[in-house]
Structure formats: structure tokens, C-alpha cells
């Protein structure tokens, strides 16, 4: 990225250092990344509510000035197809993507969590959630998807070390006269409840998310999919919050199942 040493960005990169170390020590085989596309990999020609990347590789998307200079994202096609079958039989009608470019919504979190490696150190199952076109899936549905993802992973016939990342900026709005809102109080409430009582967060409506964290910040509902995939009881490995990253509040929390070696970010 070339910006890691700039004073403006340094606190953000530093805030991810414990996460980087945790991941480097854990050495997962696969990271399931819950992310959203920003009209790059998908235009409005198609808007899947939940899409799963079933290919063995995903190229960084050209977002208007050439693709981001990061490694190609390696998938795990066999695991993705197993998950797809499990999810659909579990009533989640996934869109199956056999070719898909992935944008900064997926690759920036990877960069923050891994730095600038020659190749990403694990395979990735991208799960893309529509959070930019109303009606988005509800917070409750995103959480339930996480539960179904856990069942899918646990029923796989290979013993893999799997982590799951829920991505998305915290409070921010980048359109209209309300551009620039930041809501530190709500963001911290969200991280608190995410850890201890996520079901409370699933009861919040679209409009209340938009009101409290901004039309673009409502993408934090994707964090609930990550949380749904974890056990009810989790330990907080790391927690970090920072304002601003340009227009956005940045949050990073690492949670680990209390009673199980299977872990999640």
C-alpha cells in the first residue's frame, strides 16, 4: 500500500498488528470473508443478496484505475461447493459465482490482516452480501446465515482450520448533506453487544442502522454473519477502534470460541 508509515494511517495499521500476529500464529487453511462489493465486481446488472465464490481464484477488480496491486485471491472450490450445498439445503438460496472479481471490500481487510505478502497465506471463500441496494438482507438474516455457515463448515469431510471475517467500515456516510457522520457511541455499543449479546443487534431495523451509522455504514450488518458462525460464548482476543480513516470509523475485533479451538476474526 505504501502508506503504512504515513502518520495519518499509522494508528490504523498499528491497530491491526495484534490481529496480524494472531493470524500468523494460528495459520488458518481457509478464511471465509463476508464482504460487500461496491459496484465493481457486480454492477447493478445483477444484485445477488448472498453470493458465494465457488472458483479456485478471484482476481482483484479494476475499480477505475486498474486493479489494486495485491495478490490474486485463491479460493477453495471443493469446500465452497460443499458449503453451497449445505447452505441451500438449509434454506439459504445462495447465488453461485464461478467467475468473480473481488474489490477493495475483500482485499483491503486482507491487506490489513496480512500486510503485503507475495501471496495470501490462506485460501479464501468469498461471500458477498448486498448492502448497497435497498432492500438489503436484514440483520437477523445475516446472523442466521452465519449459523448456517458454521453447520456447513463443521460437516465438511476435511479437517481444516477455518476462520471467518466479517468486514465493513463502522459508522460512515459518503453521500448527501449528512456525509461525514461518525457515531462513536453506537459503534462501541455494537462491538460490546457483538461479543456478549448479538441477538440484540439482529432486532435493529434497516432504517435505525442507517440513522445511527449512516447509509453506507449499515454494512456493519455483515459483522453479524461472522458472529453467527461463532459459538454463543466467545473470548475477545483483540479490540481496536479508530476515527477517522478518511470518512469512516474503523473497528477491528478478534473473537475466539471459548470452548473450541476453532476460531474466528
Amino acid at each position: 500500500m505504501g502508506r503504512t508509515a504515513e502518520p495519518y494511517w499509522r494508528p490504523i495499521f498499528e491497530g491491526y498488528e495484534p490481529t496480524k500476529k494472531w493470524l500468523a500464529d494460528l495459520k488458518p487453511d481457509v478464511m471465509i470473508v463476508i464482504y460487500n462489493d461496491h459496484a465493481n465486481g457486480f454492477t447493478f446488472k445483477y444484485t445477488p443478496t448472498f453470493a458465494i465464490g465457488c472458483a479456485d481464484s478471484f482476481n482483484p477488480a479494476d475499480e477505475g484505475h486498474g486493479p489494486r496491486r495485491v495478490p490474486v485471491v485463491r479460493g477453495d472450490s471443493r469446500l465452497a461447493w460443499h458449503m453451497t450445498e449445505s447452505l441451500v439445503l438449509d434454506q439459504f438460496d445462495m447465488t453461485m459465482m464461478n467467475e468473480m472479481d473481488v474489490d477493495h471490500g475483500l482485499t483491503v481487510p486482507l491487506s490489513l490482516a496480512c500486510g503485503q505478502p507475495e501471496a495470501w497465506p490462506f485460501k479464501v471463500i468469498p461471500i458477498c452480501v448486498n448492502v448497497i441496494q435497498y432492500p438489503q438482507p436484514t440483520a437477523e438474516r445475516c446472523y442466521a446465515l452465519g449459523k448456517a455457515i458454521r453447520k456447513a463448515v463443521e460437516s465438511y469431510d476435511e479437517d481444516l482450520k477455518v476462520v471467518i471475517a466479517g468486514t465493513g467500515g463502522m459508522s460512515h456516510q459518503i453521500h448527501g448533506a449528512r456525509s461525514g457522520i461518525i457515531n462513536q457511541e453506537f459503534d462501541n455499543y455494537f462491538i460490546d453487544k457483538l461479543t456478549t449479546s448479538p441477538v440484540e443487534l439482529t432486532k435493529i431495523s434497516h432504517a435505525e442502522y442507517v440513522r445511527e451509522v449512516g447509509a453506507e455504514g449499515m454494512e456493519i450488518i455483515m459483522w453479524l454473519t461472522m458472529r453467527g458462525a461463532l459459538a454463543d460464548n466467545v473470548d475477545v482476543v483483540h479490540r481496536f477502534y479508530h476515527v477517522p480513516a478518511m470518512n469512516t470509523a474503523v473497528g477491528n475485533v478478534v473473537l475466539q470460541n471459548t470452548d473450541s479451538p476453532k476460531a474466528a476474526a
Binding site: I132, Q133, Y134, G176, A177, R178, H206, A207, V210, A215
Partner: peptide, 15 residues
């Protein structure tokens, strides 16, 4: 929902 969204200032719901 429409009333709730319409009450949020300076925001256009992309519906």
C-alpha cells in the same frame, strides 16, 4: 419503513 427512512435527514435511500 418508508416513514422511518424519510425521517433521516440528508440521506437518499437507494431503493
Amino acid at each position: 419503513p418508508a416513514d422511518a427512512f424519510n425521517d433521516i435527514p440528508g440521506t437518499i435511500l437507494f431503493n
